[in-house]
């Protein structure tokens, strides 16, 4: 049986990298007594798969993890059992049973929502307007570096939506193995376009939700699973 776990990563936990979060969950599963399934072989491992690694320094309220279990005691019970073993800043939001034929979160991932806003002492007055008009352009060319080459690509098509909000700028960006746009890359291009020097970590980046595409529609990853008593 497969269960899709949605969790939050906030506060100081932004300083714990993806691999350490993975190891953390492996230990939580052991501590909590969840009947997690293991792979075979000489060194068996827990059958866990994360939707999308969250970069160091980012917070999120919409992280996903698929877990293969031997039995399922119900959504609420599993959530409580896990949360009793979590650490401050890591919290399970829901545990939903996936249909047997569900594809892994990682494979179907298509988009992510973010909220970005400058850290204290960073940014500049009117940054929201400037960012809105930057994103209003038909194309945004950036140089993407890969291990082998550098090539110029248009990242504008990877920005699916943006809105000014009271507490920052909301961004819906492509995310996943097919097309992917990191908010840091977008913000850096934005700073460059203004002739400003980009300071890494000038902005706080908070991930809100992850989506998969189904029939041309973006659906939150947790909508593929079902709350079960």
């Amino acid at each position: 049986m497969k269960v899709r776990i949605k969790f939050r990563k906030t506060g100081m936990m932004k300083f714990i990298g993806h691999l350490d979060v993975m190891r953390f969950f492996q230990k939580v599963n052991r501590r909590s007594g969840i009947p997690i399934a293991y792979s075979g072989g000489f060194s068996p491992h827990q059958l866990l798969s994360f939707a999308s690694p969250l970069g160091l320094g980012l917070t999120s309220e919409g992280e996903y993890l698929d877990m293969e279990v031997e039995s399922f005691e119900g959504s609420a019970a599993m959530k409580d059992r896990l949360n009793a073993c979590m650490a401050e800043g890591l919290e399970v939001v829901s545990c939903r049973l996936l249909p047997d034929n569900a594809k892994p979160a990682m494979a179907v991932l298509a988009a992510a929502d973010y909220l970005v806003f400058p850290r204290k002492g960073h940014g500049f007055p009117g940054w929201e307007e400037a960012l809105s008009s930057f994103l209003g352009k038909p194309s945004v060319m950036v140089v993407k570096k890969t291990k082998k080459s550098e090539r110029e690509t248009d990242i504008r098509p990877l920005v699916y939506d943006f809105q000014r909000r009271e507490d920052g700028m909301f961004l819906k960006l492509a995310c996943g193995s097919v097309e992917n746009l990191k908010p840091e890359l977008l913000l850096e291009a934005f700073y460059r376009s203004l002739g400003k020097e980009w300071e890494p970590f000038a902005f706080r980046i908070h991930r809100l939700e992850l989506y998969a595409r189904k029939d041309d529609e973006l659906l939150p990853l947790d909508s593929f699973g079902e709350e079960r008593p």
Partner: peptide, 9 residues
Amino acid sequence: PGRYIGGEP
């Protein structure tokens, strides 16, 4: 940075 934050189980 995880060296400097505490909060371990």
